[in-house]
Design a binder for these strands. Structure first.
Lengths: 349, 349
DNA sequence: TTTTTTTGTGCAATCGTTGCCGGGAACGAT
DNA sequence: ATCGTTCCCGGCAACGATTGCACAAAAAAA
């Protein structure tokens, strides 16, 4: 019951393995008669070439590595979904690695992926990663590589991202337009490209509205459990107290919601809240959560498409570029203007 | 810059590949001096044995296949998280396949996994799968296999599941205890073991409370988008109208919530709602959603542990068994008794 | 009939690694 | 001096598939 090999076919048909191999690949130098024989027999035995042997031989392994910080994260699982969809109908398989936000594991995973002779890598950086020489090395070796979401702008490789700046800018502008002035930003570790872009969008909007940037209003989380509560505590202690929270992840947005509710703070009356999230439940939360949504699946798809193009067309593929997909601000109740907003505006607050 | 092979080392040190191989594996038949030389040189060149070659050679590939219907699903991504955690610190890698609820793709994925010489498979059945002969074949071939969550009780392999019956029984009992009598059950495709177990738990509770089972109150979804709305529509048309919904998945619970709210139906006053879900946002929904939670990560961990035991101890491993992990009913506002419940009870409703 | 061309097939190397066999050197025992 | 051990190490084959080259037989051309 062991898998059928080319040798089995050769033996059974009294041919050499080379003939069988060539017959199966429909080579012109094999007689039609022999081809038919081989093909039929192979079909009957349900022969499948051994991908391991093929990889060893040096051709392609038809496998892509996807390295992400966490699978159990809405954004990444959606992105992987997109990747897998493209990979599948181009005949590739997907091997998934998690870094758990560790630089060590990121490097180990890259090593492993290369050792397993994947045809290419799709990578989203860990939050600990500030040094990308391991990726430079990879790229120098000619290993096809595409970064997505959490990228490294300096690397001369294709990168697929959401418009983090634009999303953050839109969210912050919206908060400002609805009368908020003390806008806190709860965000994720500072090395990440997405953190910096979102922070930049936040600052740009503040500047645009002539509101001074206060770094005490920016707090960095670390993906730890229940960390939002403490960050919220710190922010609420600020004087004057923030009147809006803009968070950079779904986990933080939920954490904020919990922390604020726990303290009896009303949303949006006392504090306005906007997340940066793909939570399908955002609309059903109490209150419905305003968020900046990202096209996670499209990001995955696009990244996979670019990678496969890179693999298959090698030199002729489009040159490295950063592709930016639009984000969307979805306004819901959690960022509604406070009831007194109108009056406040009138007295020039 | 190509990966270093055992041959490179052999050439450089003027030894044979076999000697190098043995030196690296610390074989007793190599002189300490030679070993030292080889080891040091290998270390310096950062030599890593080629896993592909090892797989081909027939030993183990140190890779596990995980086949699930969907990655972008809270339960599965958490389970995979658990699997990956165990696999990682036992030195295994995880290759993930999605069936997208298709029987065809499930079979293709199993084929691929075997072709890639994984050391074992972790599988959760697609909702289309009613025939498991492909798994019988696999098991007959001696391929280590563990099923989890959506299992096939007839297969003589280890299976790791949540206590679906118990969870459904608890949820339904709770609804009955809070005065509900027309309890609808929105569930997932009928072939699935989990569907049947949850349905059985639901029926058992009804019977326990002397409430007749009405099959018009049971609706099967198909994982389609927005299907909940139509199912809710159908159920609301029933006469008398249901006073509670018990759903078998997080997607359905959210869909129900949306559909009911859209129609102006109050939860829990008009209709009580309990989901079967691991949504982290359940507590923050409006109203907070009562659910039966499953230990997704533990299920993954346990399944991975069993599989690795199977792989490494082969014959000496514990015999196939079904491991059942407890589910927990978390009661929140969505299943609170209606305000008039007390009065109703008094008049014997 | 002989030479050339065409056609179909087999041999052997290759990928990286390990298992098996065998061989030379050194040593002690007879 | 011869034999048997022990210790180290090298060569070959094999895993499954592909591929360049060679070679045979048959067909075509001379």
């Amino acid at each position: 019951m062991d898998p059928v090999t080319i040798k089995d076919i050769a033996r059974a048909l009294n041919l050499s393995t080379s003939t069988v191999s060539r017959a199966l690949r429909d080579s012109y130098e094999i007689s039609p008669e022999t081809k038919r024989l081989v093909m039929e027999y192979a079909e009957r035995l349900n022969y499948r070439p051994n991908p391991i042997a093929l990889s060893l031989k040096g051709s392609s392994s038809k496998a892509l590595a996807v390295i992400v910080p966490q699978i159990a994260n809405n954004f990444f699982s959606q992105a992987i979904n997109g990747i897998e969809a493209i990979a599948y109908n181009r005949g590739y398989h997907v091997i998934i690695f998690q870094t758990h936000e560790s630089y060590e594991r990121e490097m180990a995973n890259v090593q492993q992926a290369v050792a397993r002779r994947v045809d290419g890598l799709l990578l989203s950086l860990s939050s600990e990663t500030s040094d990308v020489t391991h990726l430079h090395a990879l790229h120098a070796q000619g290993v096809p590589l595409v970064l997505f979401d959490r990228v490294a702008p300096d690397l001369p490789v294709t990168q697929v991202v959401a418009d983090n700046f634009g999303g953050a800018y839109a969210a912050t502008s919206h908060l400002l337009q609805t009368g908020r002035r003390r806008i806190a930003h709860l965000t994720i570790p500072p090395y990440l490209s997405i953190t910096q872009e979102r922070l930049a969008g936040y600052r740009a909007a503040l500047e645009q509205y002539g509101v001074a940037f206060d770094e005490n209003l920016v707090r960095y989380g670390t993906f730890g459990p229940d960390e939002a509560d403490e960050l919220v505590e710190q922010l609420l202690a600020q004087e004057p107290r923030p009147d809006a929270f803009f968070t950079a992840s779904d986990r933080l947005a939920l954490g904020c919601l919990t922390a604020l509710r726990k303290r009896g703070i009303r949303i949006p009356e006392d504090i306005s809240l906007i997340g940066f999230t793909n939570l399908p439940a955002a609309e059903m939360l109490n209150p419905p959560l305003s968020t900046v949504t990202q096209p996670a699946q499209e990001i995955g798809q696009l990244a996979a498409e670019r990678l496969i193009e890179l693999i298959e067309r090698k030199q002729k593929a489009s040159p490295p570029a950063t592709v930016k997909l639009p984000t969307t601000l979805v306004i819901r109740e959690s960022s509604a203007p406070p009831v007194r907003a109108e009056a406040d505006f009138r007295i020039g607050l």
